[in-house]
Design a protein around this nucleic acid. Sequence first.
RNA 1: CGGGGCGUAGCUCAGCCUGGUAGAGCGCACGCUUCGGGAGCGUGAGGCCGGAGGUUCAAGUCCUCUCGCCCCGACCA
Length: 569
Amino acid sequence: MRWSSYYLFTTREVPADAEVASHRLMVRSGMIRKLAAGIYTYLPLALRSFGKLTDIVRRELAKADCIELSMPAIQPAQLWQESGRWSQYGKELLRIEDRHGREFCFGPTHEEVITDLVRNDVRSYRQLPLNLFQIQTKFRDEIRPRFGLMRGREFIMKDAYSFHATEESLDQSYKAMAAAYNRIFKACGLDFVSVEADSGTIGGSSSHEYMVVAATGESVVVRSSDGSYAANVEKAVTGPLPLPAAGEEETSREVVTPAMTAVSDVAAFLEVEEAQVVKTLIYDADETLVAVAIRGDREVNDVKLKNFLDVEDLVLASEERVREATGSPVGFAGPVGLAEGVRLLADESVRGLKNFVCGANRGDTHLVGVNWGREAEPSEWVDVRLARGGDPAPGGQGELEEFRGIEVGHIFKLGTKYSEAMSCNFLDEEGKSHPMAMGCYGLGIGRTIAAAIEQNYDDDGIIWPLPLAPFQVLLIALNTNDEEVVGQADALYNTLREKGVEVLFDDRNQRPGVKFKDADLIGLPVRMVVGARSLKEGQVEISLRRDRERQMVAVGDAVERILHLLEAS
RNA sequence: CGGGGCGUAGCUCAGCCUGGUAGAGCGCACGCUUCGGGAGCGUGAGGCCGGAGGUUCAAGUCCUCUCGCCCCGACCA
């Protein structure tokens, strides 16, 4: 491709709204343009990278016997009503009406459509298992789209769905897909981990996320030092925390703690560790008051709590509701003497804690020397603590390290959630009807490309990993008014193309500085410069974007060298 | 949705507080010079100052409403 006739316009300046590197660089390098919040045009350069990724995806999914089809983006409301998600999915679902007033939505995911398809075509266990995928545009009306392609509202996703006669068969496909995902991200040249994950609104029993490691990632992940355990913090469990040293059981007593609502203040005032304080948070869970006792230096994991309580709405209680539960202002709640009907959950982190400090359910007052089983007893012990780096790993081997990641893939075992709701049944060998077991497997195409950039850039621009690079080679004709240079560059361009190399030829009539800056910005892996100076010696310059080490090569050997470099990387 | 902020040239922004002829840099077009790390000089095109209403002799500037966008939180590929 000749740059002079390509649709590729780089910019020196960045739109003010680009926050993260991938967004900034994708705009500057002419890959994307914003049309509206979270809605982007993919320019030719971006589309080429997408193509690289989708080729890899198709190749690897084929190995997992996953078959491609394509479903409509617009879906009738009926199907969503049948699965129950029309009312559950909330505002993220973009609902539309046709001219007859019939309701539709723009598909954010395709469980309903595929389940409807399969229930009509598949009848027998003999036809199972089936694993189907598509690569298609989705729309989710995100509350807050941001970071360019990292969290758009319209985005391209590869989504796959599998159908099974048995749980074992589902297990097999799930494992095959997990392996395929590992191969895909490895083939992309990305630093990633797969982690245990919460299954969220999609539902189902088991799920794993694929995280590209990046400081700007929106997800927090913990991993044990030996690598045997890795999980999203939303889901992560830890080994038991060591208990602070404690002496004999004391008698409890009240102390006045004026205006001390923060654990840190109370601990400092009483000269105890924060770990010796039990903090009690009052939640409003679907209008029911729930108190959660947790160690003072730890945070509650709202996702775990929500899952445990199995409620729709979970928020910290308002001041008024806190008063209802505790009879005191916010900041002095404790497990002792809560109002009738308030459910008290205690996190495992405070189990076995002796002589602890807690709110007295009275303004400006705390209790010290409190012990479980004596002054207070929770109705249930639960694990609702947010794991963090430094915590003991579950199973007792080493500790957890914490890092951030970009979620680029998520696979779920759905079980029979959708097949039951939508009567997607099959007949077994005895002619008995059962709902099919299902799995679903998502992979963000644009997001993976953005994540690849997030992991591979420097001050000057993108550093494409070869497998995802829009072109393999950038050929620069440095002096376009020098006939010799133009002639040689042209010849090299043609030869490279004949050899099947994906080459972008910068034949623009621009000054060298501009071309070099643009070369660094768009970051193609291999650069070949044909300039008057080196051509006098019969040489051209070849360098890799990653290390920028320039080597001079005789014109006649240049193509060979390029082929060799591409093969080696 | 709650909290904060911004809409002025294609892009980045100044001008608004204190109302009085709409600006700069980059980009774009043309000319000359230049040509291995975003060139210099000159000339030029480009604006319903997001939109509607109001106050005023006069509104980019003040007021009200509205639309859009961004940042911080709860959501997710």
